[in-house]
């Protein structure tokens, strides 16, 4: 039987699909809150992306591992308990390893709990699929999310202060402070969505095979 091969290829396609074709932010518009709030600096965006990916993967994995034990009627509470446990762990670990960035993320690290992607993946995927597959599915979603955070963080930090990771790259840069506050963030995200959709449309016409219904 080539079951293993099929499973591996299925895992891979879920993984790729979650990064690009059904990117959590561009396509599903999930978890926008933190993506806009923490991307004023690239370092914050990177750490936030990694944290979300980590919590997503590990909580999906564990939920999927015990999915047969979870009583149906309290499953949402179980998801939340597991997710919030790992969010607190991430919060404490960040405080130990990167205190500066941890302070920079402030309350938004706690808000990973309500990041719709986490509950979404748990309910839509992890509860029905084996651990390995759930892990890959979450990794794809997490990386797709991180990708958007990085693009936003890169543009916003560069435009606001002419620097990246706090290192000044453009001297005598006129700060566009609008980008660091809400209106600019919204406009920037909208512009990135336009670019994404243009690229995606181009891709779709190039290879129709890649597109399959979810």
């Amino acid at each position: 039987m080539s079951g293993n091969g099929i499973r591996a290829s299925k895992g891979f396609s879920t993984f790729v699909e979650n990064i690009w074709l059904s990117n959590p932010i561009f396509v599903m518009v999930l978890g926008v809150c933190s993506s806009l709030a923490v991307t004023t600096k690239l370092a914050n965006a990177l750490v936030m992306g990694i944290s979300v990916t980590f919590v997503l993967c590990i909580s999906s994995f564990i939920i999927s591992l015990v999915r047969k034990l979870i009583p149906e009627q309290v499953r949402l509470i179980v998801f939340m308990l597991i997710i919030s446990t790992f969010v607190i762990t991430v919060d404490l670990v960040l405080r130990i390893l990167v205190p500066e960035v941890s302070k920079g993320l402030g309350p938004y690290i706690g808000l990973i709990i309500t990041n719709c992607n986490l509950m979404g993946r748990a309910e839509a995927f992890a509860i029905k699929n084996p651990p390995g597959l759930s892990f890959l599915d979450s990794l794809g979603t997490g990386l797709g999310y991180t990708l958007v955070l990085l693009v936003l963080g890169f543009l916003r930090e560069l435009i606001t202060s002419g620097s990246l990771f706090g290192i000044v790259l453009l001297r005598n840069w006129t700060s566009w402070n609008l980008v660091s506050i809400a209106p600019g963030a919204f406009f920037l995200l909208a512009s990135i969505i336009i670019v994404f959709n243009m690229l995606k449309r181009k891709n779709k016409t190039a290879s129709v095979t890649a597109d399959k219904p979810r």
Binding site: I193, I194, R201
Partner: peptide, 15 residues
Amino acid sequence: VKNLGDAGITIVLAG
């Protein structure tokens, strides 16, 4: 703009 999509235009409005 067509490529903005439903969510995109909402984000512009939010801005």
